[in-house]
Structures are given as structure tokens and as C-alpha cells.
């Protein structure tokens, strides 16, 4: 049976696909990307470019053809199918990864799970290591006058 909706509009399928690219961490500290609800955000980024949307959609249709209930498969099975399809459709991975990584690694849940601050850089800023004084001593000896 041919799916009547585009894979990019099938949020259950897309969530399973994104959970394949970024699965949950072993200790479950970090959720999978699909489970985190990133599919709409990633789809919006993909469909902002017609050429990319067309290529990704075509690849996802092949996945759906190979596994009509892709979301029900276990991770290893989903990985195997995506890897196989990506060999013939290299834009599938290269086009989805950038918006996916941006969405995932900017999400407060992920930042918290990674032990990173869940705030923007400004206004708090960050502290950094001071310059090694031994290095400055070396420069003093080399300085021109």
C-alpha cells in the first residue's frame, strides 16, 4: 500500500527517523531526537529549500517502501534501512544532519542532560583559563623593543 501523505508530513514516521539518527543515550540521560519532538522544526528547515526537500522526501519514500511500519522496527533495523537507502541518496543524511544537530543541541533538555548551562551566552558570559604565566615569561625574553 502506498502511503498517501508525504513522509515529511508524517510526524510519527519522522520522529522514528530522527530517533534513528540521534537515538536516546544508553543511560537515557539524553532523549532521542524524534522523541524530543524535533520533527516539525527539522521539517521546516528542510522544506525551506525546494531542492533539498525534494531529495530528502524521495529518499524517505524509499525507506517507507522498504518498511511500511518503519516506526515499529527496533533501532538496529531502522539503522540498517537508513544506511542502505543513504548509499543511493547521499543528500538524505547531509541535508538532515545540520538542522537536526542545531535543533537537538540547542534544546534545554539536551543541554541539561549534557551538564551544560541552559542559558544563552549573554548576559552571563563564561570564565576562561588565564594565560599561563610561564608562557608570558618566555615572551618577555623574546620581545623586541
Amino acid at each position: 500500500m502506498v502511503n498517501s501523505i508525504s513522509p515529511l508530513d508524517d510526524m510519527v514516521f519522522m520522529a522514528a527517523f530522527l530517533d534513528t539518527l540521534i537515538p536516546p543515550s544508553e543511560g537515557d540521560d539524553l532523549p532521542g531526537a524524534g522523541t524530543l519532538g524535533l520533527a516539525p522544526q527539522v521539517v521546516t528547515a528542510i522544506t525551506s529549500n525546494d531542492r533539498i526537500a525534494s531529495a530528502v522526501s524521495a529518499a524517505l519514500e524509499v525507506i517507507q517502501e522498504q518498511a511500511t511500519d518503519y516506526a515499529a522496527l527496533d533501532l538496529d533495523q531502522r539503522v540498517a534501512i537508513v544506511g542502505s537507502v543513504a548509499e543511493d541518496h547521499p543528500m538524505l543524511i547531509s541535508s538532515v544532519i545540520p538542522p537536526l544537530y542545531f535543533a537537538y543541541y540547542q534544546h534545554p533538555t539536551v543541554l541539561m542532560g549534557l551538564g551544560l548551562p541552559t542559558r544563552p551566552p549573554f548576559p552571563g558570559g563564561y570564565s576562561i583559563d588565564e594565560t599561563d604565566p610561564d608562557l608570558l615569561d618566555l615572551l618577555s625574553a623574546k620581545a623586541s623593543s
Binding site: P23, Y101, Y104, Y105, L111
Partner: peptide, 20 residues
């Protein structure tokens, strides 16, 4: 965090899927 993920992916050090 995202920039390092993309860099790592670009040089083949950060895979998609298990092990990410």
C-alpha cells in the same frame, strides 16, 4: 555544542545512530 557535532560529523568522528 552543535558546531562541534557538525565538525565531528564532517570529519567522520561523530556518527549518526548508535555511538553518537
Amino acid at each position: 555544542p552543535a558546531g562541534e557535532a557538525l565538525y565531528g560529523n564532517g570529519i567522520g568522528r561523530i556518527p549518526w545512530g548508535p555511538g553518537h
